[in-house]
Amino acid sequence: MRLGPGGRPVFDDAKERALMARIAEGDGRAFEALYEIYAKPVTNFLYRMCYDAALAEDCLQEVFMRIWKHAPTWRGQCKVSTFIFQVAKNYGLNARDKASRYRARYGDGHRDEEESSAAMGEPVAETSGPAGTAAGEELRSLVRDAVETLPEDQRVVVHLSQVQGLTYREIAEVLQVPTGTVKSRMAAAADALRRKLERHVRP
């Protein structure tokens, strides 16, 4: 997978369409190639929806199973990346709801779902501490909490935009909402994140 500016992935739609056509005919190698491209981005996307790495891994398998099964009926009306994230979004929401019901009913050892405490503590001097340092770990924890406590619709937009590098139009296709909605969600999310985190990242 190529990476673009800022380390965001760059998806090659022409190449991926060719892979989808081969997958539709049952080409397992093409499926593996597509999996190679999308396994990590889809896992990360799913993780941002459920915040459970094991669940994200489970969902990854189901997402690609659906891609395999639905490839013959895919009409190519959108980019392959859009199609794949659409499948992931639909599946991730479903899985997240099931997991939430399960947790509500039985409880488990998952992390607390308390509100973010991004406002707590003193500023962390660095914008990103060296890996393994206490300051870096603390900042990462704050960022994770801040993102996790965003409303889900905003969190998904932030992830697709800032991590996956999708355009607003592509995000709108994935989420099946108007581009204006995507923009307003992004703006609201950016503002909420800034208010929670800016004190920790002052220059």
Binding site: G7, Y35, A39, A56, V143, R144, V163, R194, V201
Partner: peptide, 23 residues
């Protein structure tokens, strides 16, 4: 920008998933 950079750099589990096993 500083905040969004942090979000982009947030460690995600994509690398940790055993992709070969899932495949």
């Amino acid at each position: 920008r500083r905040v969004l950079k942090l979000v982009h750099e947030e460690s995600l589990p994509g690398d940790a998933v055993d992709q070969a096993k899932v495949l």
